[in-house]
Design a protein around this nucleic acid. Structure first.
Lengths: 339, 339
DNA sequence: CTGAAAGCGCTTACAG
DNA sequence: CTGAAAGCGCTTACAG
């Protein structure tokens, strides 16, 4: 089947190709009657402008890029990214932008992808995930002048706008709640230590524990997998004075932790309370259901996409703070049996 | 920063743009010495050919599309899609093809996306998921002559090649195993009834149960969510002569079913055995760990991508059968306490 | 308000 | 083996 072009429309409408372009893009320069006639023909023959021709003529590629730098196995198991993607997608398709996705092995590969996308003019902008300390991707994007929005922040994003939530406040709320229940020994299983938000949470955890006069404020870091979460939990719960509550940096590790506790003959929440960061349907499926820090991840992605589209269209955008994760208490937290 | 073009390379090498194009694309028409010089310059200035210009000149867009038609919440919770995507991605990026992703609400929206992609020349081909009975997407893709590979089959794919696994064999293996353990009342919680593979499994379940002389062979269908899996399980386990084993069409529902059984005071696997279709790390995290039907989903996606790239490059491809899912027995299956 | 034309950055016949 | 040129399908100044 031959694809229709503006030349076909122009011929049928008896006007020039330029007129068709103006009409279709809502530009001035054609009469209303002509515009309507052109639009009707375009509709009738099912015309979609060639994205290649458009992009080549200096217009935008109408696509944004998302590079995901996580090993395949953690990508699949964490609902976070897929939820983020659906939120991003909803916003993009509403404005008929495409999402170009690439899974990369490490930050260097990710930088190479950005350079390639830029050279290929394949995307108009990118969404940056998993902000790191001293993130080398930031200066590259700044130098390329590729519009970008960081999912994270507000610190360490350089001149790029970030979409971020108040992680410290969410963590403080959680610890305060556990202390109110009577917990005095709270531990935390954090995510990848090189990620900025892990650092923010770790610092916040230390300071809120100090403020509330808790003796320990240890964070064990992990790679987000259930195996690592289980290992960390085993270590924590084997200690002489084991914690009576553990906060996990994702849902998968929290579930793994729950299993380990039960395996070790401890009851949840009697012997140990469990809190998951980032609520997901999984948290409601296990017994007891997990107390979790909930936030609207699709909306988070949607905001990032909106910001990026603004940046792409030339608007100078500032970072925005999204809603703080809020604690959703469920059956996995209670006063400690032996405080 | 200005993007380098072949004109820049041509100038620096003192040759024509045509020569640069031939050199970079490994075409004959330039001497080896010139080719090497051109490649070195391209490398040095970090050249990537404009994908728009390439696509416009009749070459391929070097992108394939994937439209996902599931509500956002089930997309996030099922590891399947993200694992599939990582497998597809690995294969695509090795040949520097991009993946264009779009989440759609229903089959009509999906068809509209294919028409648009085709009109925009945005992708060179598409991967089709969630094959349905009498799938309306198939004739559209055939008519557009857009290269496509179906993830599913072998029936109902029309003239399109499919990548499929022997679902009936996997189901038979599972039921035979349960019967060998002594089970006589086996039930199944299936996925969306309109999906082709749900039908295949449902038919296979009925016929293997008949062959083995089991009294019941009921399938309750669901929407793949944990809630629906829990509801179906509650109904099944409340029956007068409840099943002693239940097979679930995904991991999330199996975990939900496990929780429901425990909630109802039944032990797993003593009172009821549980089997999950599509193994995932989740299955190993819960207690008891779930017996599951495992297959290499990233590899499944990789095969589909390879087939699609062949089709895009003009090779006439036939469908392929991938490895059959194999049963991985874990703690959630055992001989029934009260057969 | 409308038409003719240049140009985006490639690829690819067509001459030399 | 190499150069000059047309063309892909748009967008956008520039004339009428």
């Amino acid at each position: 089947m031959k694809r229709p072009t503006i030349a076909d429309i122009a011929r049928r409408a008896g006007v020039s190709k330029g007129a068709v372009s103006y009409a279709l893009n809502g530009q001035p320069g054609v009469s209303d009657a002509t515009r309507r006639r052109i639009m009707a023909i375009a509709d009738e023959i099912g015309f979609s402008p060639s994205s290649a021709a458009r992009a080549l003529s200096g217009a935008s590629a109408r696509a944004v890029g998302l590079a995901l730098c996580r090993p395949a196995r953690t990508l699949g198991i964490e609902p976070f990214f897929m939820e983020l993607i659906s939120g991003v997608e909803a916003e993009l398709s509403a404005r008929s932008f495409a999402l170009t996705l690439q899974v990369v092995a490490d930050p260097d590969a990710e930088i190479a992808v950005y350079r390639r996308w830029w050279g290929e003019r394949r995307v108009d902008g990118v969404l940056l995930c998993d902000l790191r300390a001293d993130d080398r991707r930031i200066p590259v994007l700044e130098q390329l002048q590729l519009p970008a929005v960081v999912i994270g922040g507000p610190d360490g994003t350089g001149a790029l706008p970030g979409v971020w939530s108040d992680e410290a406040a969410a963590l403080a709320e959680t610890v305060e709640y556990l202390v109110a229940l009577g917990h005095r020994r709270v531990a935390r299983v954090g995510g990848l230590p090189e990620l900025q938000h892990t650092r923010v949470r770790t610092d916040a955890f230390r300071s809120v524990c100090a403020r509330l006069g808790l003796s320990s404020s240890d964070t064990v870091t992990s790679d987000y997998t259930g195996e690592d979460g289980a290992r960390a939990t085993r270590r924590l719960l084997s200690a002489a004075r084991r914690p009576t509550a553990v906060i996990y940096d994702n849902d998968v590790m929290a579930i793994a932790g729950l299993s380990v506790a039960q395996e070790m003959g401890l009851t949840v929440p009697g012997d140990v309370s469990v809190v998951a960061w980032d609520d997901s349907p999984l948290c409601r499926l296990v017994r007891p259901p997990l107390t979790a820090l909930s936030r609207d991840i699709p909306e988070y992605g949607g905001q990032a996409a909106r910001l990026l589209l603004d940046a792409v269209s030339g608007v100078r955008v500032a970072g925005v703070r999204t809603g703080t994760a809020h604690l959703t208490p469920r059956g996995s937290t209670a006063p400690p049996r032996n405080p």
